[in-house]
Design a protein around this nucleic acid. Structure first.
Length: 259
DNA sequence: ATGGCTTCTCGTAGAAGA
């Protein structure tokens, strides 16, 4: 089984790339996308179904928005963080093949100390409580998405320049570690990885060509899935395509479930 | 560098992203 996450920065613009990528990567069973920026009424569900995929989506106009595209049916779809008052559409969860998929688009935060930064930390605390409960209900649980946090300095092209800045501040990294402390593992760090592997590059300054990036898109899994995890890697290919998203997809591979 | 680039909007400039 393979699962993936990709911040597409507008599904309206990127749908052809998403379908092309899934066509070229037929082994991927479920893809979580973020920043769809589409109201549910205009979500391209028919185009996705025409490509032989199932989908579940939770969106709004202009900002945010998340969706799951899957080879097989999605069950028990839950939108948002139940009990947490939030207008912004940042979470959708569903079960495929017995695996609970939680797709998250974590708040960016804009700048350390800003109102949006306080919202980010409050939002992460609510996510932690939600995942604590979800882990109790679903032994095989994966949290995939754009976390907008570079967990440590290995995940930053220029740690000195980013020290203490948004996406890298201590409070954000503490919040990320608090998610892991629930019993989740960062699949990427289970394996040897090339140095300077990132999942996002700024559109400006030829960031991708110069590999000026951050690793902020993650796939975290519960212990029963972690022991089955065989690989995790960033696929930089679509970032090099014409008119790309600023993020690249991340893919985690799992051995079949033991019987 | 308060920059750069890309996306969105009852657009044509400003906000937001990261």
């Amino acid at each position: 089984m393979k699962i993936a996450t990709w911040n597409v920065n507008s599904l309206k613009v990127r749908l052809p790339q998403v379908l092309a990528w899934l066509g070229e990567n037929s082994g991927i069973d479920a893809l979580c996308v973020q920043e769809t920026k589409l109201r549910n009424e205009v979500f391209p569900a028919e185009d996705i179904r025409a490509a032989g995929l199932h989908c579940a989506f939770n969106g709004q106009k202009t900002y945010n928005g998340v969706a799951i595209l899957a080879r097989r049916p999605l069950a028990d779809v839950v939108c948002d963080i139940p009990g947490f008052a939030d207008e912004q559409k940042r979470v959708i969860a569903a079960t495929m093949d017995g695996v609970r998929l939680v797709n998250v688009y974590v708040v960016n935060g804009q700048e350390v100390g800003a109102d949006k930064y306080a919202y980010k930390l409050r939002w992460l605390a609510a996510l932690r409580a939600y995942l604590d409960n979800a882990l109790a209900q679903h032994p095989a649980l994966a949290v995939l998405g754009d976390f907008n946090i570079a967990p440590d300095d290995r995940d930053v092209h220029d740690p000195a320049a980013w020290a203490g800045k948004i996406l890298c501040s201590d409070a954000e990294r503490d919040a990320f570690r608090a998610l892991l402390a629930l019993g989740l593992e960062d699949t990427f760090r289970r394996f040897e990885q090339p140095e300077a592997t990132f999942s996002w590059w700024d559109y400006r300054q030829a960031g991708f060509r110069r590999n000026l990036g951050l690793r902020i898109d993650h796939i975290l899994v519960s212990a029963p899935l972690a022991v089955r995890c065989a690989a995790c890697a960033v696929d930089k290919t679509p970032r090099g395509w014409e008119r790309p998203s600023d993020h690249a997809p991340v893919v985690a591979t799992f051995d079949a479930a033991p019987v």
